[in-house]
Amino acid sequence: MLEARLEQAQLLKKVVDAIKDLVQDCNFDCNDSGIALQAMDNSHVALVSMMLKAESFNPFRCDRNIAIGLNLVSLTKVLRAAQNEDILTLKAEDAPDSLNLTFESSDKDRISEYDLKLMDIDQEHLGIPDTDYSATISMPSAEFKRICTDLMAMSESVTIEAGKDGIKFACNGDIGNGSITLRTVQDVENKENNIEIALTEPVSLTFSLKYLVNFCKAQNLSKTVKLHISNEVPLLVEYAMEGGSYLRFYLAPKIGD
């Protein structure tokens, strides 16, 4: 069986919030290393890969592989009943038809308990190859969100160009064009303000802003975001969490002209 206790419900609330507009029905694949999710959006342009490591829970018990088939709209309805600071416990049997969730207020004067019906979801899993990306950019997640939102007001796509002079986000729209260029920032006092650019070769790729803006819903999970870019492969947008857990989004580039 699965028993997983989170010190703060907000971790799961934020993760589900960040992906529920991209994917609807998906399996939480549980084993002794944690809870994983992999799902594509309906149009097969983006892929969500979530890993909540056992280390992010206390305690975490799961002695065999358990697939928890969830509708994220339904899960959201239940999670809305949890306060951010509540202790959240997930429980499921080995071949579950429901997921048990309890929310315990931190001063323990209230315990809420819910059982959510599960779905049988036959999901395709894609093998994501290990990639040495040509450019890796680490930046404040709020900055990335602002860039995507600002450019989306002008155009439906953005060209991300990483070179020795920095990283440039450029768009071309009906009303005109715009670009934002970022250079390396080293803020010793506040490392989360840093912009780090690791480049092995220049890259330039075009992506749909609609998806990028959607990924930015994960902003609350982490103060920093990492973009991994190589020519002609999907962009990886990564939000890292405590305990080695992560939420990753892959986005297929636009192709041809």
């Binding site: 594509m40 149009s43 097969h44 342009v45 983006a46 892929l47 395709e124 899993h125 894609l126 093998g127 994501i128 190859p129 796509s157 075009t206 749909s208 492969v233 999907p234 892959y250 986005l251 297929a252 580039p253 636009k254 192709i255 041809g256 002209d257």
Partner: peptide
Amino acid sequence: GAGQGNIMSFFSKK
């Protein structure tokens, strides 16, 4: 304009 790539053409089915 550019066409939108499909994620399944980059990642293989397991």
